[in-house]
Design a binder for these strands. Structure first.
Length: 117
DNA sequence: CTTCTTACA
DNA sequence: TGTAAGTA
């Protein structure tokens, strides 16, 4: 049996996520509305989050705090999702994965979305 | 008590 | 984004 934690399992309540990310319920729901994050519901239409969701929320929070447009982040995620099929995977740690994701996000936001163009 | 949606400031 | 209102 694996001792690995299933980080993609939605088991966290909004309250916990708020405490873990320092985001308000309003912000989290807003990000969801803008499709900045994928979401899952459970009994009673309650939002449930996974550990991976926490990571993405933290990243998005940084993006927004650093003044990025909702639209750019949204565009990035759509592109990301649609190009997953023929991707070569290699084993990386969660920390590496988060780092890679953040860099990709940063790079994407810097290229082709420059207001000065 | 916690969360949800809708709507207004 | 915050918050009030009426629910589930």
């Amino acid at each position: 049996m694996s001792k690995e934690i299933k980080r993609d399992l939605p088991i966290l309540s909004l309250k916990i996520v708020m405490a873990l990310t320092d985001l308000t319920a309003r912000q989290i729901r807003y990000y969801e509305e803008k499709k900045l994050i994928s979401y899952h519901r459970s009994e009673g239409n309650q939002r449930m989050f996974s550990l991976n969701d926490i990571d993405e929320l933290l990243i998005i929070k940084e993006m927004i705090d650093s003044g990025e447009n909702i639209k750019d982040i949204q565009a990035y995620r759509q592109k990301k999702t649609s190009s997953y099929q023929n991707t070569t995977f290699k084993t990386v740690s969660d920390e590496e994965a988060r780092d890679i994701f953040r860099n990709e996000m940063m790079r994407y936001l810097e290229i082709g979305n420059n207001p000065l163009d």
